[in-house]
Amino acid sequence: MLKKLKILTLLFLAILTLPVQATTTAESRGLEISRKADSKDTGFKDSTAHLTMELKNKQGQTSLRHLRVKSLEVEADGDKSLSIFDKPADVKGTAFLTFSHSKEADEQWLYLPALKRVKRISSKNKSGPFMGSEFAYEDIASQELDKYTYKYIRDETINGIDCFVIERYPSYENSGYTRQQVWVNKQEYRPEKIVFYDRKDSLLKTLNYSNYKQYEGQFWRADKMHMENHQTGKSTLLSWFDYKFKTGLSDSDFNRSSLKRAK
């Protein structure tokens, strides 16, 4: 009798968990792909790079920004980064310090050299544009595994590259997105394309990665990142160059003092 009941219970449980099991599979697969991509980029320690941002409006008029970006890998948390503007000339010396966190809200400070002022930026502005570009603050912050939940969607080949298509859902507050679809290169586990959906779940932006280069025999970095806003017709092209890894940066290169003396 007892045995029978046990079998019945098991059977019952099995039936109950069956549909759940199926969704968990898509979710755990999505997470697994993302975890692998994340671990492939672990160990870069620190990096420096130059960056140009070309902003293009609907009419095709362009304006250019020049930046330098320093990053520091932080174990078991988000990375630290310092971005310093060289152009446009009126904002030269303006610097952004970001402490990304995997679970808590990111912390950001802005230094305005003309006023000698350090401003703490509210984490509420995550969805706001970074320096007038089509990249939001949340797009340029380091993409930590814990910032999203994931779901595997399908396999697809784009531009001759075999990709996993996964969907990720921001688990942090104040995101401007309901979801993002990411095309992950099956071979190298690097993103090839991201499609962003706004808070109303309408198509908002597409980000294409190209001209990938491998550094230190491990870390893939795209030289070109092109973000197109489908709702406004504007676009931004990031061109990265002069990447250097393991340059010996430390915590003291990413504090209030270093923010103020950034030139």
Binding site: S122, K124, N125, S127, G128, P129, N174, G176
Partner: peptide
């Protein structure tokens, strides 16, 4: 007090 993304725009 900052109204972020005023009326669906990117203005604050």
């Amino acid at each position: 007090y900052t109204l972020v993304g005023l009326m669906e725009s990117s203005a604050d």
